[in-house]
Simulated assay, not measured.
Amino acid sequence: MKRKKWIAKRDDGTLVFGEKPEQLPEAAFISLTRGEGLNLLQLFINQVLTLLVMHQMKKSPGLIYAELKGELRNWKGCGQTITVWDGKMMPAFRNKSSHRFSMKFFTWVIHRKNTKTYYLTFSANGQIPSTTEATHILEQYGKLYDGGKLVRKATPPTREEFTTP
């Protein structure tokens, strides 16, 4: 079996872990996160924490595929992650080691007046959204914090709602 590693896609700067599979296991699910409006200090802290979590991801059983994408426009940044998991392996990853520390620390950093954050986990239903599709799915269905205040709880899309064109 080929060992997975992080690779930067030169065309858009996305970091990819593993190869995007043609077919997903029946029990696969997707976790999406997005932060918007981060200032330079928040972006720096985000980068440091992301590097720690990326190292943990390399060792995580059940992680099928991951994409990390970040942008900087007008001195404000956004970052988005897509992770695809086989079965219910993500809670074990999420609740220990670097990711656990990052969640606790990053919540203090990212849930500020200048940011919007989205979180969503849902059944993959055999497909992985593109980065653009993931953004739309998060904006429509994700748990939303605006300025550090919970605005909306997550309502994962149904099988019929989550279809790629």
Rank of each mutant, 00 (worst) to 15 (best):
E26F: 08
A27G: 09
A27D: 15
A27T: 14
A28Q: 07
F29A: 07
I30R: 02
I30M: 04
L32P: 05
T33Q: 06
T33A: 10
R34M: 11
E36A: 03
G37F: 03
G37D: 07
L38E: 07
L41V: 13
L41C: 05
L41W: 09
Q42N: 01
Q42E: 07
Q42C: 00
L43S: 12
L43D: 09
F44H: 07
F44S: 10
I45D: 01
Q47W: 10
L49R: 02
T50K: 01
T50L: 03
L51G: 09
L51E: 12
L51V: 01
L52S: 12
L52C: 13
Q56D: 15
S60H: 01
L63M: 08
I64V: 04
A66D: 07
E67N: 00
E67T: 05
E67D: 03
L68P: 04
E71H: 08
L72N: 00
R73W: 03
R73Y: 02
N74V: 06
W75V: 05
W75R: 12
K76N: 02
G77P: 00
G77T: 06
G77R: 02
C78N: 14
C78S: 14
C78G: 13
G79H: 07
Q80Y: 01
I82H: 03
V84Y: 03
D86Y: 08
G87F: 00
G87Q: 11
G87H: 09
M90G: 06
M90S: 07
P91C: 10
A92T: 11
A92Q: 11
F93I: 07
R94W: 04
N95E: 14
S97L: 15
H99W: 09
R100F: 14
R100Y: 13
R100S: 13
F101P: 00
F101L: 14
S102R: 02
K104Y: 10
F105G: 01
T107G: 15
T107F: 11
V109W: 03
R112N: 07
N114C: 10
T115S: 14
T115W: 11
K116H: 08
T121S: 15
T121F: 03
F122H: 02
S123N: 15
A124D: 04
N125V: 05
G126L: 04
G126K: 00
Q127Y: 02
I128K: 01
P129T: 02
P129G: 02
P129M: 07
T131H: 00
T132A: 15
A134N: 01
H136D: 12
I137L: 12
I137D: 05
I137V: 14
I137A: 00
L138V: 07
E139D: 06
E139W: 01
E139F: 02
Q140K: 15
G142C: 04
G142K: 06
K143G: 00
K143M: 15
K143F: 09
L144G: 00
L144Y: 01
L144C: 02
L144K: 09
Y145D: 04
